[in-house]
């Protein structure tokens, strides 16, 4: 029982990270109907931005985190401006292929510029063990869950309580009508990319902190899994991404703990296949027939 609870805690830490990345996927999809496959690499760049802030400028955890988020936000906006905006009226498949291209570009640029050797991420938070009865929780796991929760609450507030959030929801609902209402659609899209990228960067820094290791290809697997998490929760739905991420994290840890590590990656994609077959709109999604 103790072990089971301990594994749940491990799963929630991992799941919070998936959830943060999944939010970026789902927000962009909600507005542009685009699966932004470069998102996992934005997460990687965020981790490296945090690394440089901490290792080179010797900033502490919170400034490094904010720096990484700001840096990734700029990158996200730039990607949208350069790669996706010119294709705004192109077919969805053209934009999708472009997204894969941007992803490959960032990965290989990362190998050239940042070097392929894995690096040690600085210990920004001194390790401490917190004891809860027979349970051991380390403060880094608490930091991950805490930061993720704060960011998700902040996101909910931005989306539901601010003017720009209202504009985002309007654009997601119907771009053309939103434009007729005087909403600057391009600005709203840029803002969405900035927001999603910042959350991914936060996930990158948290992963660096937790595992202590980053490299230019670190975004591939978590990127794909967060995408599965977004689909699992219902793509385009913000609460769906949160739930999907947590479910994925816990499922993965449980599979490793009680089945076999060889099944770890398989389970993520098995979930994707099952959800697409059984409930394509996701756990929290309503079944909507696509208008032709």
């Amino acid at each position: 029982m103790v072990e089971f609870l301990q594994q749940i805690i491990n799963g929630l830490s991992l799941g919070s990270i998936y959830a943060l990345i999944a939010l970026g996927y789902t927000m962009v999809y909600g507005i542009l109907k685009l699966i932004n496959f470069a998102h996992g690499d934005v997460y990687m760049v965020g981790a490296f931005a945090g690394y440089y802030a901490a290792a080179v400028f010797h900033w502490s955890f919170v400034p490094a985190l904010l720096f990484a988020m700001a840096g990734a936000a700029v990158l996200g906006v730039a990607i949208e401006r350069i790669a996706y905006r010119p294709l705004r009226n192109a077919t969805r498949i053209a934009t999708l292929i472009t997204a894969i291209g941007v992803s490959l570009l960032l990965e290989n640029l990362g190998i050239v510029v940042l070097h392929p050797e894995p690096r040690a991420f600085p210990d920004l938070v001194q390790l401490r063990m917190v004891r809860l009865g027979a349970l051991y929780i380390n403060n880094r796991q608490l930091v991950i869950v805490l930061v993720a929760t704060i960011l998700m609450i902040a996101l909910q507030w931005v989306v539901n309580r601010t003017r720009i959030g209202q504009a985002m929801r309007a654009v997601a609902e119907d771009q053309d009508t939103a434009r007729l209402m005087g909403i600057n659609v391009d600005r709203v899209i840029s803002f969405t990319f900035a927001l999603g990228s910042a959350l991914a960067a936060a996930a990158g820094v948290l992963v660096g902190l937790y595992y202590g290791r980053i490299d230019p290809l670190m975004g591939i697997m978590p990127g794909l899994k967060a995408f599965v998490a977004a689909v699992l929760g219902g793509i385009g739905l913000i609460p769906g991404a949160m739930v999907g991420g947590l479910v994925m994290g816990v499922a993965e840890v449980m599979v490793v703990a009680f089945l076999s590590s060889t099944w770890k990656d398989a389970v993520a994609f098995a979930i994707l296949i099952v959800i697409l077959l059984v409930r394509p709109s996701g756990l929290l999604g309503r079944a909507v027939r696509e208008k032709v």
């Binding site: 594994q7 799963g11 449980m254 490793v256 703990a257």
Partner: peptide, 10 residues
Amino acid sequence: DQDFTAQLTR
């Protein structure tokens, strides 16, 4: 794999 927490917990 980078996450060994499940195995180490066991």
